[in-house]
Design a protein around this nucleic acid. Structure first.
Lengths: 240, 240
DNA sequence: TCGAAAAGAGAGCGCCGCTCTTGACATCGC
DNA sequence: GCGATGTCAAGAGCGGCGCTCTCTTTTCGA
């Protein structure tokens, strides 16, 4: 009978959910190296070997948590973008950056798992690629919308990318249709710059150097947004 | 006698050196989590407890290796800078960026230790701060020299930092004396942007997306250098 | 030369990931 | 209704880890 079969399957799904839940808590409090299948089993009142019925190895559990984390930051970014007026391109960019930072500050260990050192010996399976680019997809859509709306006016005086960049530009352009190579290159610089300053903050590189990290972050993302041609926002002072 | 005393002390220094040497090899091949005192002892033909005569804990060995790594990338950057004509500011910037990337590509696990996820439970002692900023010091000197030489002409159209940034700007300015707040902010954006793109490359974020990472890197550092006002170099095409 | 300090050796504690086997129990075909 | 089949928790155990404690040996300075 499907009823009784689903009874078992539901029990299995519930236990799987509980394992990932406890794993996520361990991850948040101890970091990736503190993730222990034995500790999870202990907390669940199971014997350690029973866990392996649900996750064949520690890496498999880690993969599940990584996918969850990618989806979490992706969703945070998507929702922040969705709350903005569609034609407020600089506002959308700022909202995305702030959402990413907010999530990272709230979940530093998960951020480290996604954008920090790769777990040694761990090879990300194919299932992770789609969740992994959810945030980047949002970013690309903002730029594509802004470009289509004629709202991108990149500052003069920057070098153009060499012709050899055109191949990779074509690949990246699938995320931001329509943008010329020059803007694709600037978009990559902005995006990686965002994660650069974010990683510096999360990973402690600003310790004893920068105190008011919010001010620095806000100004930096405005600068990076301006680099790709987003207009200066109302709240900014104009430059020299 | 100092001769006989140094006999034992030399043995101690030699063993300490050998431990860090093997540790560095483990680090390079396995990453930080693969660093095992027992394995080091095994390779040295010692019993594992004897290692603790030289490093009281695994974290202390890790600290030594981190300091070594900071010094290694710092030295690579310093030497690259020293090979340039002093007044070739964009050349020095590019040399520094390339040296950092070259070192990171050659020592990805060590790079991860410095600029990736912090080792959980590990607190960097005070001894690490001076080696940790060797590369940043070089960067600051280039900008200070360029500014003093009147060679910085930052592009127009970027927002100015808010007044609340001035306090942190003062602290950062100790690395690049003379620069106004606006340029200090751009300098931070450039520097964090450099490590942003570097981390994306080293940590695999470009996998299956960007093939020709050298081209992208070269163009990005030119863009970031331009952002702080370094002149466009000869090899670059001029922009629109 | 002798006593103190330093260093190595060994056993052991409590963790860890992971494997293999065993017995209890539900499910399904006959 | 009842065996055959599949699923699962439990237990024991393997090798590895960081680290500690004790005991012996070596070294070195007064």
């Amino acid at each position: 009978m499907s009823a009784s079969r689903t009874a078992r399957e539901r029990a299995r799904a519930e236990l799987t959910r509980e394992i990932t839940e406890i794993g996520r808590r361990q991850l948040a409090s101890e970091g990736a190296t503190g993730l222990s299948l034995r500790a999870i089993a202990r907390e669940m009142g199971m014997v350690s070997s029973a866990i392996y019925r649900y996750f064949p190895s520690r890496d498999d559990l880690l993969t599940a948590l990584i996918i969850d984390a990618y989806n979490a930051i992706g969703e945070a970014v998507e929702q922040a973008d969705a709350r903005c007026a569609e034609d407020d391109y600089p506002g959308r960019w700022r909202a995305v950056c702030r959402a990413a930072r907010g999530w990272a500050l709230a979940h530093p260990h998960e951020y480290a798992l996604l954008y920090g050192s790769p777990v040694p010996g761990y090879q990300a399976p194919q299932d992770t690629v789609e969740p992994a680019i959810r945030d980047t997809v949002v970013y690309g859509r903002i730029l594509a919308d802004a470009y289509a709306g004629g709202a991108l006016s990149p500052p003069d005086g920057f070098p153009a990318p060499p012709p050899s960049f055109s191949h990779d530009a074509e690949a990246v352009r699938s995320l931001m249709p329509g943008l010329p190579d020059d803007l694709v290159a600037r978009a990559v610089a902005s995006w990686t710059g965002l994660f650069g300053i974010l990683s510096f903050e999360i990973f402690g590189q600003f310790n004893n150097v920068v105190d008011d990290r919010t001010t620095l972050f806000e100004h930096t993302i405005d600068t990076l947004g301006r680099l790709v041609g987003l207009p200066v926002s109302d709240h900014d002072l104009t430059s020299t």
